[in-house]
Design a protein around this nucleic acid. Structure first.
Length: 275
DNA sequence: ACAGGATCCTGGGGGC
DNA sequence: TGCCCCCAGGATCCTG
């Protein structure tokens, strides 16, 4: 569910609520997430203090004392919130970490359990994990040449390339569609048929769309909420995503929906031509 | 090597 | 109202 803007919003809202505080008691649910929880992780996290919170693509990194790293992925329906300890515990809450000081808890809730929570002993261990998964660069730091080469070097369609976390880290189904619309590129266009001018346009569109979405604290379609429990509002600015049949905001042609790379894909058949 | 499809899981909505 | 099917913001494994 959550893509880069949603994850960035969670991280920004976690920082003032978590940094400087210590995990005291940890409670773990019985149902497994993508990675099964170990007793060792509970032991490691106990009495560790939160020093910093970072984001890499759709990953949340909680840096704790003694180099420990708590790595979290929200999957499709993950929610990471800091709430008063006495607030009702909702169903599908898989991890509760009690915080010292004020009576608050960090909670991880995930209905579909596509999310994951993992612990790494140090910076090197986490970097090795990212290395192994081939996680690509942050969209904001990408150079034109790198992006063009990655796009032109594949026979996959642009939609599939944007969803590939090894090319860019953080773009998902919503922002892929919105960025392709902004760049006026057809989602089914093949990477190898894309010239560098178009690739550059796409790169710029991605950055602009992501930045605007972050300003709006991400998109809340159904499950997504930030660390404070607040919803995002970028869904009100969707121009193609989930707007099948609506008039294109540029040319009034009805927005079309098709299936690409196994995902529903929204585009304007008139503004986004396949050449 | 690469691309596309199936899979993991739960809940909500539409059609009958 | 009930049932069945399809769909959903993601990542990973398998197949051809």
């Amino acid at each position: 569910m959550p893509e880069l803007p949603e994850v960035e919003t969670v991280v920004r809202e976690l920082r003032p609520r978590l940094i400087g505080r210590t995990f005291t008691t940890l409670r773990v649910g019985s149902k497994p997430l993508r990675k099964r929880w170990t007793r060792e992780w509970t032991r490691q996290l106990q009495n560790r203090r939160v020093l910093r919170i970072d984001r890499r693509g759709k990953w949340i990194i909680v840096v704790l004392s003694d180099g420990l790293r708590l790595l979290i992925h929200l999957g499709m329906t993950g929610q990471l919130t800091v709430v008063p300890a006495d607030s009702p515990r909702l169903p599908h809450t898989h991890l509760v970490a009690h915080l010292n000081g004020e009576d608050a808890q960090l909670r991880f809730r995930d209905v579909r359990r596509f999310g994951s929570v993992t612990v790494f002993s140090d910076h090197a261990g986490l970097e090795e994990f990212f290395e192994l998964s081939g996680l690509g660069p942050e969209p904001f730091e990408v150079e034109n040449q790198y992006f063009s080469e990655r796009i032109q070097g594949t026979r996959r369609c642009l939609k599939a390339v944007l969803l590939d976390q090894r090319v860019l880290a953080g773009v998902g189904n919503i922002y892929a569609d919105e960025s392709l619309f902004q760049a006026r590129l057809h989602p089914a266009q093949l990477g190898q048929d894309t010239d560098s001018r178009q690739a550059n346009r796409l790169r710029k569109a991605i950055v602009a769309v992501l930045n605007r979405a972050i300003e709006q604290r991400g998109s809340s379609i159904r499950d997504y909420i930030g660390a404070s429990g607040q919803r995002g509002s970028y869904q009100e600015e969707f121009r193609v995503y989930q707007r099948t049949g609506d008039p294109c905001p540029r040319c009034r042609t009805p927005i079309r929906c098709t299936r690409l790379a196994g995902r529903s894909t929204h585009y304007c058949p008139s503004c986004q031509r396949l050449d």
